[in-house]
Each structure stands twice: as structure tokens, then as C-alpha cells.
Design a protein around this nucleic acid. Structure first.
Lengths: 256, 256
DNA sequence: CCAAAAGTGTTGTAAATACACCCATGC
DNA sequence: GCATGGGTGTATTTACAACACTTTTGG
């Protein structure tokens, strides 16, 4: 499995900015919880769970690299994103995880070891996507991609758990200013669904009647019908007036 | 003057992350206006005005690099800072400015040209300092450091004007949540002074009585005496309760 | 006494909150 | 019919903004 990694690294490294990487926290909303896309690197006995990421090519804008990585993972082209942090401690590398693997002990060669112990500065982006519309695909030398609820992700490699935490905080901060939800929900949704999303981002409950009023008063959504799904009383269906956004603009303000 | 630049670059480049730089937007408050620290690079006829910045050493945390750069420019050690943006377009270099200089046409050698046309990804930090306590000093290969009002800085090199603009926006966003002012004012100040600062950050006027009430209600400042300066009616003197902060924590909330 | 800047009070409106209530469906 | 979740109404409190007013100084 080293061959796969080395082949990828070697093919990319020479055309890329040396110690710089982009990492993407791709968030989706599913079953009343925020989920994040993670990839798996298998090193024989050891499995590293990591965020989608990669190098930035010499002639590639930083943002373009991020979009490329998100597209590789999700297939999506125009996404809502935000550059929310840079992780740049001198000790940042996969070295610790790597040297724990059995593979390392037996057959690691210098090239692989060097790469896994290389220091990276990572520019981190947040991307919001519609969970229901995405088929995940593993990229690069990864051998698996999956959604993980953001609450249960202690086991990510390196400092990637911290990156996700930081992303969620950033999202929470932006919440009141932006139609974030329009990118995390299907095009048609009910108000209780929207409320569950907002609550999961903010991490607290909101009074239902008050939530309705506030959201409706912003004028960002319109009623478009009634829910057909067979539960209890059917909920009204809504849609965002202006569709998907690709930038975080302070357009509506509804501070909770 | 190339010698100076080349000597610096060569001495630093081999121990640093290749195409990564840190830039600092060091802000101070003076005469009712925000000012930013800029350095001057003289290339014979052409003068480049740039933000303080530099490489990140291989064994140096990103934040430490930033602190080093701020200290070089201002002498300050513990400052309030924030990483607010990354500038990473593929076209980002000093090439355009450099090739305009007369020096380039006459005596530029390949080494210098290479360096000036190198692509950099710049991690940008905002630093808030007390204008009155600082003696600026030119750093690295710069030959002058000065304060410039943030309103009049079209003439900065590369995209550094955009960086400052972005910094000011970020500051404006953080304003309502943080005791930012404590780092931009002397330890003793009057409410009108504080109001002038807040107004200059937000870019709009605030009703004086309402400003007083809001600030006082947060409990972040205490009255400590009366102003002695000889103008009209003496203003009350205040001080921040908890002194200088070195991190932006959501501690007080007073949304204007 | 007057002008200018600092500080205080009042009032009307809008926003936020809490909570009681009614409605539509499945079982 | 009753439990459950969806939707509506209303009263209280708090925040906000506007503006009139008083106080203290220098000239």
C-alpha cells in the first residue's frame, strides 16, 4: 500500500508548493446532526482517518485547489465555502501516527518516512453541502470515504479533530448573518427541519414559535406547499428564495 | 541596495518554508483614526510600501513567526492578534512592481529577479497595539517604517492594500464581541476617546448617551478618576477592568 | 454669559422571550 | 379520542434609538 501513496506523492509533489496543504471540512446535515466527510488511509494494521486535503499546485489559486479537493470528494462544483483557519504548528506532521503502524516497523523506506514526517502548514476551508445529493468517493491514495457525525470524531489523525472543532465554531459564529442553511438542506424543507439544523449548529434549543417568526420575517424563504411524508400533521414546505449561495455574504441578519 | 535584499533572503531562505509568508497588519489608534505600520523597500527610483512580514522557519510555529515579526517592527511582545485571512492567488508576487523599477532594467541579476517573481502564499495576521507606546523600527532589508492612516493607503505594493482592507473588515466584525479597544488605547482613557475609536472601526457615528450606557452596562471598564487635560469640561477617566488581552475571547457582548 | 464638550434622563418603538393555545394526523 | 408534532396568538420584558436636557469648563 506504500506504492500507492508514494506514487501519488511523487507525481504531485514536484508541481506543488512544498509544505503547504489545503484541508476541507465538508459538512452535511443528516438525521438531525452535522456530519463531516472523512477519508481513510490504511497502513496495514493502522487506519488513519483524515480530512480531504491536498497540495496546491504552483499555478493554482488557493481557492481553486480547495474547489478541486471538494469536487474530488463530493462531485460538487459550486459550493458555499469559507477559509476559517490556518494550522501551522512546527510539529504538524503525520509522523506520530505513521511510526505507530506495523508497516513502518517492518518495511518502511526512507522516502515514505520522510513524507510522513514532513511539516505541513494547512489552510483550512469549510464547505457546506447537501447531504442527500452526494456520493462520496475516495481520492488520491485514500481507500474509503464516509460521513462522520461531528460529535464523534475523536479518532481523527493528526490535529484533524481540532480542525473540525474550529470549523464548527466558525460556522456557529457566521450563523446569524448568512443563509448558511440553504446549502445544508435539500431545496425543499420544512420549518422544523430548518430549526433542527440551526439548533445543531448553535448547540442549543430554540423556542419553536419564535423561530418561525424570526425566520419568516427575514423574507429569505417562501412557502411552496405541504409535506406529503406520512408522520403526524403535515408540515408546510419552504424553499430559499435565492437558491444556493457560493459566498458568505451578510445579507440577512437574524441573531439568535 | 540589492546586496542588502539578497543577503537577507539568502540567509533566511534555506531555513524557512519555501513559498509561505506571514504578513502583519499592525493597527494603532492616533488622532481619531486607525493607522497601520508599513515598511518601505527602496529600489532606486521605485519605493515599495509593504506590510511587515517574512518567512516562517522550519522549526517555528506559525504564530511564533507572527510574533517575531511584530516584535521586530514594534518591540512589543504580548499583543492582541488574530489570523484573519490567507492570500493565495497563483499570481501573487512582487514581480510587477519590481520590473517597473529602473534598477531592474539596468542591473538586476537572475537571483533577485527570481525572488521578486516567486509566488507566495501569505497568512495574514491582525495585531492591535498602543500607538503611543511604540517606536517603529525598519526590519530585514527595509529602509523605513511608518504609520499610515488606513484610509489613505492605495499606494501599497502587491495586494497589501487589500490585506489591510480585509483586516479592517475583520476587526469590524469582531468589534461587538470583544474588548478590542483595550489594546488600542492607553491604559487610562475617557469615554469620548473610546467612542471615537469604536466609531472609527465601525465607520459610523454613535449616539453619545447610548454609547455610554451600553459600554458601562457590559461592566468591562471602571471609572478611575477625572481627566486633567485643559479643554472644556473634564471627562471621566476609565480603565479596562482586566487589562490587556492577548486573545480574542467572546467575553462581553455589546452589539452596535 | 456664552460656546463647547461631557454627562443624564425620558420616551416611543422594535426585538426577544416565555408560554398558552389551537390544528391535523396516525393509531 | 388521544398522543404527537405542527402551527398561531399574546403578554411581558428587554434592547435600541432618538432627542431634550443639565453640568462643567474656558474665554
Amino acid at each position: 500500500m506504500f506504492d500507492k501513496i508514494l506514487r501519488y506523492v511523487e507525481s504531485v509533489e514536484k508541481e506543488a508548493i512544498p509544505q503547504l496543504s489545503v484541508n476541507c471540512v465538508i459538512l452535511g446535515f443528516h438525521e438531525k446532526a452535522l456530519h463531516v466527510v472523512v477519508n481513510r488511509i490504511s497502513l496495514d494494521s493502522v487506519h488513519l482517518m483524515v480530512l480531504p486535503g491536498g497540495y496546491v499546485y504552483q499555478k493554482e489559486d488557493l481557492v481553486v485547489a480547495m474547489e478541486r479537493i471538494v469536487k474530488e470528494s463530493t462531485g460538487l462544483e459550486k459550493i458555499l465555502f469559507k477559509q476559517f483557519a490556518v494550522f501551522g504548528k512546527a510539529s504538524r506532521s503525520f509522523n506520530r501516527e505513521f511510526t505507530k503502524s506495523r508497516v513502518f516497523k517492518s518495511k518502511a523506506d526512507k522516502g515514505v518516512l520522510d513524507w510522513f514526517s514532513k511539516r505541513f502548514v494547512s489552510v483550512c476551508y469549510l464547505a457546506l453541502v447537501d447531504y442527500s445529493k452526494i456520493e462520496l468517493r475516495p481520492t488520491q491514495f485514500m481507500d474509503g470515504a464516509q460521513w462522520l457525525p461531528v460529535n464523534k470524531l475523536k479518532e481523527l489523525a493528526m490535529d484533524h479533530s481540532d480542525i473540525v472543532k474550529s470549523a464548527c465554531e466558525s460556522l456557529r459564529k457566521e450563523m446569524p448573518y448568512t443563509p448558511i442553511a440553504s446549502n445544508l438542506l435539500p431545496s425543499k424543507f420544512t420549518l422544523p427541519e430548518l430549526q433542527a439544523l440551526v439548533e445543531s449548529i448553535l448547540g442549543r434549543q430554540i423556542d419553536r414559535p419564535n423561530f418561525r417568526r424570526k425566520i419568516l420575517k427575514t423574507g429569505m424563504i417562501t412557502k411552496i406547499g405541504s409535506d406529503t411524508s406520512n408522520k403526524r400533521r403535515p408540515a408546510d414546505l419552504y424553499a430559499f428564495k435565492h437558491g444556493r449561495k457560493t459566498s458568505l455574504i451578510e445579507e440577512y441578519r437574524f441573531g439568535f
